[in-house]
């Protein structure tokens, strides 16, 4: 009985694979397309990072050229002033609210994703170090 179910599952699985044109394979063109989609978001993040996002004309790059000193690899980590473990996006919002005197972004806002993409892109290659201070 159990074996029969396995066989049935296997057959069903094969059917799914067949109808899905080998979903685990992708082409160089796919890679290029996905890379371009990602780099476009990085570019938008770079633009936002160099724009006044708050009410006082101050932009992130004024204090973080090339997003330096944002240490994305250390998140999540304990921020002693917030008194808890937070994510990179919490600190991004803190900086929007304070040095930039603006309103925080919703955490799933495309602009937040773009800012994170740019910040992490500028830090590519640095090993993950969650919790590091």
């Amino acid at each position: 009985m159990f074996n029969k179910i396995l066989v049935l599952l296997a057959v069903f699985g094969l059917l799914v694979f067949a109808s899905n044109a080998r979903s685990d394979e992708f082409t160089k063109e796919d890679l290029k397309k996905w890379r371009e989609a990602f780099m476009e978001v990085v570019k938008e993040g770079e633009r936002l990072f160099h724009s006044p996002l708050g009410r006082n004309k101050v932009s992130c790059d004024m204090c973080h050229p090339n997003a330096a000193n944002t240490h994305p690899e250390t998140y999540p980590k304990f921020q002693k002033q917030l008194g808890k473990v937070v994510e990179l996006r919490d600190m991004i919002n803190w900086c929007i609210q304070n040095p930039l005197e603006g309103d925080p972004l919703p955490l799933d806002d495309p602009r937040m994703i773009a800012l994170e993409a740019y910040i992490k892109w500028e830090r590519r290659g640095v090993p993950l170090a969650p919790g590091k201070h």
């Binding site: 004024m62 204090c63 090339n66 330096a68 000193n69 830090r123 590519r124």
Partner: peptide
Amino acid sequence: AWPWPYPPTYTQ
């Protein structure tokens, strides 16, 4: 006004 990161912190 503000401090700047030290250049070696930009790893690229």
